[in-house]
């Protein structure tokens, strides 16, 4: 039981850190967020294509 309690504390610490990371991402400047969206598109596009969806990552200018 003590071991489970320890894991619960550790899990709570991880969830808190995860939430903090998401808030940090939310506070990034918009152009930086757009770069991240494009990275996500590059990762996801091949999967979408395999499902027959015609998607492509944005070609950003600067």
């Amino acid at each position: 039981m003590e071991r489970l309690d320890g894991l619960k504390v550790e899990a709570e610490r991880l969830f808190t850190a995860k939430e903090r990371r998401r808030r940090d991402l939310a506070s990034l400047p918009f152009p930086q967020k757009v770069q991240i969206v494009v990275q996500l598109q590059r990762m996801a596009a091949p999967l979408f294509k395999k499902r027959g969806l015609d998607v492509r990552a944005w070609r950003l200018d600067r």
Partner: peptide, 14 residues
């Protein structure tokens, strides 16, 4: 989604 991303963490959209 991009309008929302202005305020939130980035989310996937094409």
């Amino acid at each position: 989604a991009m309008g929302a991303t202005f305020y939130t963490e980035p989310v996937l959209t094409f």
